[in-house]
Amino acid sequence: MTDVTTTTALSELAAGTYVIDPSHSEVGFVARHAMVTKVRGYFREIDGAITIGDDIAASSAKATMKVDSVDTGAADRDGHLKSADFFDAENHPEITFVSTGVSNVSGNEFDLTGDLTILGVTKPVTLKGEFDGTAQDPFGNVRAGFTASTVVEREDWGLTWNAALETGGVLVSKKITLNLEISAIKQG
């Protein structure tokens, strides 16, 4: 096992490719339900990599989420999300994100802009990100941690299903918060 120094500053993060560890990462979303509560969901099957450049601004990321892995803790709701009313898993089995730029790097915080594709519709999004540090795990892997979030309008991707409430408002909010907690393993 090599001796690896824990890194806590983004400016000190070693250049290279870091592969997302799906068993220690989370890609989730939060939607307001019935105008009064929040429902959280996750994509349990994710794949991707982060490439750190010699200059942080030259870094990139890509990720794929399997729609069939959506999990909100309620089987009926998960089935509805997989249906043609929402993600249409049969015809659009994956959601993808491919970065197009890193900007506003300040300390451990940064903006990650990229193309998010849902239902075959690609739109730009900007994630507010933060580098959480690195550590060597007991198996000798160097892990880097990142968190990121953004708010999107789901209808921009054709996710328009909804139901009106008798008391006013709708069943599912138009604004959705996307949250990422990523653990990635350095390659080579």
Rank of each mutant, 00 (worst) to 15 (best):
T113E: 14
R44M: 09
I95C: 02
D54N: 14
V39L: 01
H92Y: 01
I95S: 08
K186I: 00
G129Y: 02
A14E: 14
L171C: 08
E94F: 00
S69Y: 02
D111M: 08
G169Q: 04
Y42Q: 12
A89Y: 04
I52Y: 08
K62S: 13
Y42C: 04
N162D: 15
K66S: 13
T72C: 02
L159C: 13
A34M: 15
F146K: 06
S23H: 06
G120W: 05
R154V: 13
E26A: 09
N104P: 01
D21F: 02
T96Y: 10
F146A: 05
T72M: 04
N91P: 11
V39A: 00
L119F: 05
G48N: 04
S60V: 01
P93E: 14
G16S: 04
E45L: 11
G133T: 03
E153N: 15
K62M: 02
N108C: 10
D111P: 09
F86H: 13
N141S: 05
N179H: 04
F86R: 14
F131I: 04
L119Q: 13
A135L: 05
F97E: 08
R154W: 06
T7I: 15
G28I: 03
T7D: 12
D54R: 04
R77D: 10
G73F: 04
D76R: 10
E166G: 15
V70N: 11
K128C: 06
L116T: 07
S11P: 13
